[in-house]
Write a protein that binds this DNA or RNA. Structure first.
Length: 481
RNA sequence: CGGAGAGUGGCGCAGUGGCAGCGCGCUUGGUUUGGGACCAAGAGGUCGCCGGUUCAAAUCCGGCCUCUCCGACCA
């Protein structure tokens, strides 16, 4: 590990981001362009996020299953908008076992089609509904410009797929799952998000309506952190997912799909990190507390006493918090402090000869880098409370940052000025008439896209920021990842 | 696919035709340890690939490949 300082966030955000990902050992570049290796520390973070999502999916009645990686090309082509949206980024297998394949196989970019095909086999009656399925999987999209965690050719995610008897049920499901994403993003990842509907041009290829949660990153750009789609009957019709209702009438199902990916790890890094490196929200941090013992070398007695206290700390906290000890003698305390700050551990416990003497420890919190000295007797009470406090603080801090960088505008000249130049100055809330033309013009002229039409809207209607015509709703505009 | 930059020990770089180097990391020994310690001795390289020029190429010429960053596209 090098001694070199990270590139400051303010100087070059993407250099900072790449350095943090690699030096914190979250991930590394793979030998194939656009592919990455998720290292144990990064994977542990993903597993914690998975647990929180999975728990909520199961609590709302969903069951996990697994569908194949390969999809017949013809499946993808069945839904018109779907193939249009995905064909540019498909990885296609043309040979197998040394022979050309009769029909090329697509490596799944998402699984609506193959799951739709299976739903057709499984669903016959209204009694079979709803079908509530989730799968944890990898998917492949041949992206032009990859970026660690945010956009890689292969990524990990969960994709939920459900089938319902009525439009209302499907709509309710899509919103229910979006709310779970809001909950996980805000309460686990400490990332404030704006929930809303995607515009027609930004919605999922083949969906009736797409819902999204949008977050603001540390460079004020927007990141889509999760999506949920009401697919209407589009896929049901393409794959003939039909059931007989109570009146013996054949009906098409209403389906949904929803996903959250390893991109969330990128969101966590870019929302909370600082010039020292990563800052992980306690609830998802693989290591919540790192203990750094300190002693003078050659003083065996002192070392024994310090390590004895460390054992006591482990006994007191080991059951309730994810705790590790870094007792490496080849690194000075200062080196270890920096190392664990780079890796984003929320709380550090420093314990050395002075502390032993006074029966105390030093707690250093990662978010504010503040140090507090407490009695060892208070550990069991103070450490979990501190973790909670950090979790809250991270969320509040990120929310404040987002709100400070969100502006409501009604004048297009001001809008343009706000979006001008490289980088981003934040989110704009503005009335928008809903037309594709205005949206496209705005994008062309400012590089800002509609991120979502938030559920929370002002009471009164207004005038479109671009064309000035009547507009029922406001949209969030921003430069996005 | 357009624009920019880079490929030389694990990482970061220097090296404009003549012995392949520096810093960090790594190994060993010793001294250290409350905010990125120090000393000493080591290990580690077909200089991205192919071809050409030359007595001689990391260096010059031609071609190719790869990666990163910025744009178009996207979870």
């Amino acid at each position: 590990m090098s001694y070199e300082k990270l590139t400051p966030r303010s100087q070059d955000f993407s250099a900072w981001y790449n350095e943090v990902v690699q030096r914190a050992e979250l991930a590394d570049y793979a030998p194939v362009r656009g592919c990455m290796v998720i290292r144990p520390y990064g994977y542990a973070l993903w597993e914690n996020l998975q647990k929180e999502l999975d728990r909520r999916f199961k609590a709302t009645g969903h069951k996990n299953a697994y569908f194949p990686l390969f999809i017949p090309l013809s499946f993808i082509q069945k839904e018109a908008e779907h193939i249009q949206g995905f064909s540019p980024e498909l990885a296609v297998v043309t040979h197998g076992g040394g022979e050309p394949l009769a029909e090329p196989l697509v490596v799944r970019p998402t699984s609506e089609t193959i799951i739709g095909y299976m739903f057709k086999q499984w669903i016959k009656s209204y009694r079979d509904l709803p079908v509530l399925i989730n799968q944890w999987a990898n998917v492949v999209r041949w992206e032009m410009r990859p970026r660690l965690f945010l956009r890689t050719l292969e990524f990990l995610w969960q994709e939920g797929h459900t089938a319902h008897a009525t439009e209302e049920e499907a709509e309710e499901e899509a919103l229910r799952m979006l709310n779970i994403y809001v909950d996980v993003a805000q309460n686990e990842a400490a990332i404030p998000v704006i929930a809303g509907r995607k515009s027609e041009s930004e919605k999922f290829a083949g969906a009736l309506r797409s819902y999204t949660i949008e977050a603001m990153m540390g460079d004020k750009r927007a990141l889509q952190a999760g999506t949920s789609h009401n697919l209407g009957q589009n896929f049901a019709k393409a794959f003939e997912i039909q059931y007989l209702d109570k009146n013996n009438q054949l009906q098409y199902c209403w389906t949904t799909s929803w996903g959250m990916s390893t991109r969330m790890i990128g969101a966590i890094i870019m929302t909370h990190g600082d010039d020292q490196g990563l800052i992980l929200p306690p609830r998802l941090a693989p290591i919540q507390v790192i203990v750094v013992p300190i002693w003078r070398s050659g003083n065996q007695d002192e070392k024994a006493k310090v390590l004895e206290s460390v054992e006591r700390i482990k006994r007191v906290l080991g059951e309730t918090v994810r705790l590790e000890v870094d007792a490496r003698e080849e690194y000075t305390p200062g080196w270890r402090f920096n190392e664990w700050e780079l890796r984003g551990v929320p709380v550090r416990i420093e314990i050395g000869p002075k502390d032993i003497q006074n029966h105390q420890v030093v707690l250093a919190r990662r978010d504010t880098r503040e140090k507090i000295t407490i009695s060892q007797d208070q550990l069991a009470e103070r450490v979990p409370a501190l973790l909670d406090n950090i979790q809250k603080n991270l969320f509040e801090r990120a929310k404040r940052f987002r709100d400070e960088n969100t502006i409501e505008l009604s004048d297009y000249a001001k809008f343009k000025e706000f979006m001008e130049g490289e980088g981003s100055r934040g989110f704009v809330r503005a009335y928008w008439c809903g037309s594709r033309e205005c949206e496209a013009k705005i994008k062309e002229e400012t590089k800002a896209t509609t991120r979502c039409i938030p559920f929370e809207q002002p009471k009164s209607p207004g005038r479109c920021i671009y064309c000035g015509k009547d507009a029922k709703e406001q949209a969030i505009f921003a430069k996005a990842y």
